[in-house]
Structures are given as C-alpha cells and as structure tokens.
Amino acid sequence: MRITMVKKVLADGQDCGKCKDVQQRLEKGGYLPRIDRVLVADERNPGSAGWMVAAQYGVDSAPFFVVRHDDGREQVFTVFMSFLHEILEGRGPAPQDSPEALAELARRDDLDRL
C-alpha cells in the first residue's frame, strides 16, 4: 500500500489550518511514517503537483489522501477521520455520518477549500 497526502500551502507560504491540524494528529498518533509522500497544492503555483492530483481526482478540499492498494485499487479520502479509521487503524469503513452531522459540517466556515 502507498499513501499520498495532499496538503495546501497558502499564498503566505503557510500550510492551511486544517492541514496543520491533520499533520499534528499524524505526528501525535505515530502515523506519519506510514505516509509515503506528501504533495503540495501551492496557491502561489497553480501547476504544483498537489493541484494536478486534486484535479485528477476531482477533489476541492485539503488535506486529502490517495491510497493505492497492492492490488492496484485506489481510494481517495477527503475526511481525515475516515482515513484514520479505515486505513491507518485498519478497522474497516467508518460508520456513515448522520444527516445532522453532515448538515453541521456544511454550516461551518472554518474548513479549508482548495
């Protein structure tokens, strides 16, 4: 299995807020060594590798993860907790979010978009 993380770098050169949070969670949980590569979607460079991968998979939020399984199958995770639960912790698919939880996420304005 190969895991690619795509994170966003803002015009000021800083990682996006959500990307910083996810990076800290990966470090704290000891999961960072399992990430094979990190690509950057840099606001200062629309041709950066991260933007190209985001376009390839139709993703418009950061960070996200692309998991290539040994059998060639690929999965894209835009929700860190699902990625953590299913891939890093190996517990299978996470339970589906309730409609109420999804509505709450839709109302939040503190989530970073690509």
Rank of each mutant, 00 (worst) to 15 (best):
M5G: 00
M1C: 06
M1A: 10
E43W: 03
D109Y: 01
M5C: 03
R25T: 07
R44L: 06
E86M: 01
R107H: 14
R34Q: 15
D110Y: 04
D70R: 02
A54R: 14
M81L: 07
T78I: 10
R34M: 11
Q96H: 13
N45C: 09
D97G: 10
G17E: 09
A62P: 14
I87G: 08
L88R: 11
F80Y: 15
A55S: 10
Q96I: 04
D70A: 05
E104H: 10
T78F: 01
P46Q: 14
L39E: 14
E104Y: 01
P95S: 15
T4Y: 01
Y57F: 12
G90V: 05
A106C: 06
D110M: 01
L88D: 06
E86A: 12
D71A: 00
A49C: 02
C19M: 10
K8A: 09
A55M: 07
G17W: 07
S82L: 06
G29E: 13
R25Y: 04
A49L: 06
D109N: 09
V79W: 11
Q75R: 14
V53G: 02
V79P: 03
M52T: 09
R107P: 07
C16Y: 11
E86K: 02
D60C: 05
E43F: 00
P99K: 12
E74Q: 02
A11K: 12
G29I: 01
A54S: 15
P93E: 15
D109R: 14
N45G: 05
R113F: 02
D70N: 09
L39W: 00
A41C: 09
G58P: 08
G50L: 04
R68T: 11
M52G: 05
V22P: 10
G17T: 14
E100R: 02
G50N: 09
V53A: 05
R113N: 08
L111F: 12
M52P: 00
G30P: 05
L26R: 07
